[in-house]
Design a binder for these strands. Structure first.
Length: 578
RNA sequence: UGGGGAUUAGUGUAAUGGUAGCACAACUGACUCUGGAUCAGUUAGUCGGGGUUCGAGUCCCUGAUCCCCAGCCA
């Protein structure tokens, strides 16, 4: 309907377009990512980071990394460090704007005093249980606290003494005086401060009263001059409260600062979007923590985890995660993205960038009976057919080799193109090879060795007589191969929506028992020796792999990032008897 | 059952009163020294019911379904 070449914009970009046209913020765009340091970041946070940082860079604005650290009981320095690392790794830049909400506590306290003076806040002596009872229900309004009409001076004195540490945890709160009958519970005199004699990871022991998120958050954005406060859908109900707080502070304030209350403060615009959900995994910090604590995974950075650190260890690149986030879009609909979209993102990138190598994951020995003993041939192998500039390498060929067990079938099924008795196929970059016979372990019936012949005229992989083969398989020379451990990963959960369980059923029953398969004795081509942690390689015909930090000089460990598309596997699965 | 949001192919996402498009998935076929990659094609959609209009995914009315909210969590 419109210009087909114009890229479509999401609803937030359209809001910003409009704000820029109407000069709402003087041409400024300033966003932020405001994590609470109470856990590791996951792919859902990546969506928010890409959104916020992406908007700032598209509109030539600014981006802050701000810790929303208002609850010392759940927060830790370890999380602060991991978050800073992960956000930077994803590619967001905040220059000198790494900030902590806890650095604004003094300013927030001044605002609280101002609210009391304006008759808009009071110290409440109700216990948590009482407060809950007083709050009312969806159909019944709340009742006023007995302390709701305390005088300004008494409130001021009590708040000062709360701050001074005179009262025990939980004994009093500071509450906003709003509307006990509001259908929005957030406006039924919400708590602004609670007493918490706890050491804070950033503010240390400076405070024993801590602001509630709802009281603090709007001011954090206001203080930093954030223009577009982007958050997830569940905060939509809170927006009226943030607006109320800022409006009350601005009551009596003026643009030029004349008058008793001083200058008006900035009033950011909050915009809510749907958080990311992915199939075959869970995204709540609580559940991820549970998986870690319950040893269902090996830590926050287990390659099966949807955490940024897990994805990084799995072999994902920042570019692929950004591409994924750009691909899925931004809207207000609670959608569930198929996890193949994430997998496609890394596959697409690695297809272009990852060098190809041969690796036999489940080795089957092959003897080339007409190849001289003790002889070695160095064959040329292309490093990446997608990118000629990546050149080629030499790979040793000799009389005894390994191939994939799955590349031989004693009785090949219909449509199977690989090795079988009497069949000729190609060894990648090497020769045409024909299977003449095989050896079976009489006890187990397992095929233990193949006897094959090669055609010397096909060196390099093409037959001078023009004959064709239907398959090309990978191989490694037995004498030259290096050993490695290979870890194959599958979805953490075996069903698309693990949290969709009947009442009383734990979502963990949907954990995929086969999400990790360890192959202890893979054989790799020798050039892979000494690969450093993080190196990304395509093992031909298998997938993309990345060197795990568990690797040592003696023994490499590879993680499978993602498999190649395998249409034959799909056909076999479809043909398998149910 | 009070309030706040949402609903377009299997999954996402555009279309801002004027030809319902794109991506992923699925399925065909071509090509191929990775059963990879690539290329070409096919299937498939406006939550229901009314209304306004020359014309409705879009506006109005009405119903349904889903998500969020009664922490001194964020």
């Amino acid at each position: 309907m419109h210009d087909a070449a114009a890229p479509s914009r999401n609803f937030i970009q359209e809001i910003i377009d409009h704000d820029l046209e109407t000069n709402r913020w003087g041409g400024r765009v300033h966003t932020r990512f405001p994590p609470e340091p109470n856990g590791y970041l996951h792919i859902g946070h990546a969506k928010s980071i890409c959104l916020n940082y992406g908007l700032a860079s598209q509109f030539k604005g600014l981006f802050n990394l701000r810790f929303d650290d208002t609850n010392p009981e759940k927060e830790e320095e370890e999380y602060v460090k991991s978050i800073i690392y992960d956000v930077g790794w994803l590619g967001a830049k905040w220059d000198d704007r790494l900030v902590f909400a806890s650095d604004y506590f003094e300013k927030m306290y001044e605002f609280a005093v101002e609210l009391i003076k304006k008759g808009k806040a009071y110290v409440c002596d109700l216990t948590p249980e009482q407060m809950s009872q007083y709050r009312g229900t969806a159909t019944r309004p709340g009742r006023p606290s007995p302390n709701r009409d305390r005088g300004v001076d008494e409130n001021l004195d009590l708040l000062a003494r709360m701050r001074a540490g005179e009262f025990p945890d939980g004994s009093r709160t500071l509450r906003a005086k709003i509307d006990l009958a509001s259908p929005n519970f957030n406006l039924r005199d919400p708590v602004m401060y609670r007493i918490l004699h706890a050491e804070h990871h950033h503010a240390r022991d400076k405070w024993c009263i801590y602001p509630m998120y709802d009281w603090a958050h709007g001011f954090e954005d206001s203080i930093e001059g954030i223009t577009h406060s982007i958050c997830t859908l569940e905060f939509e109900n809170h927006r009226p409260l943030y607006d109320w707080f800022i409006n009350v502070v601005n009551e009596g304030r003026t643009a030029d600062g004349s008058g008793p209350w001083g200058k008006k403060i900035h009033h950011p615009q909050q915009i809510e979007f749907a958080r990311l959900e992915l199939t075959h995994t869970v995204m709540s910090k609580r559940k991820l923590l549970e998986l870690v604590k319950g040893n269902h995974v090996k830590g926050w950075d287990d390659p099966r985890m949807p955490t940024i650190s897990g994805l990084r260890r799995r072999g994902y690149t920042p570019e692929s995660i950004r591409a994924f986030c750009a691909d899925i879009g931004v809207a207000k609909f609670n959608s569930v993205i198929e996890i193949v979209r994430l997998e496609n993102a890394i596959r697409d990138e690695l297809n272009k960038t990852a060098p190809r190598r041969m690796a036999v994951l489940r080795p089957l020995k092959v003897v080339i009976t007409n190849y001289p003993e003790g002889q070695t041939d160095q064959l040329d192998a292309v490093n990446n057919p997608e990118d000629a500039s990546m050149g080629s390498r030499k790979v040793p060929f000799s009389r005894e080799l390994y191939i994939e067990r799955d590349d031989f079938r004693e009785e090949p099924p219909k449509g199977y193109h690989r090795l079988a008795p009497g069949r000729e196929i190609r060894f990648r970059w090497a020769f045409f090879i024909k299977c003449e016979s095989f050896v079976k372990d009489p006890a187990t019936g397992e095929v233990t060795e193949l006897h094959c012949t090669y055609d010397p005229a096909t060196r390099g992989g093409d037959a001078p007589d023009g004959r064709k083969v239907k398959a090309t398989i990978h191989w490694v020379s037995a004498a030259h191969a290096i050993d490695a451990e290979v870890r194959l990963y599958d979805h953490l959960f075996s069903v698309p929506r693990p949290e969709d369980v009947a009442d009383g059923v734990d979502y963990k029953t949907n954990l995929n028992a086969n999400s990790l398969e360890v192959l202890p004795a893979a054989k790799l081509e020798p050039g892979l020796a000494g690969s450093s942690a993080g190196t990304r390689i395509q093992f031909e015909r298998h997938g993309y792999f990345s060197v795990d930090p568990d690797s040592s000089a003696q023994r490499l460990v590879f993680n499978r990032t993602v498999s190649l598309r395998d249409t034959w596997a799909k056909v076999e699965k479809a043909n398998a008897p149910k």
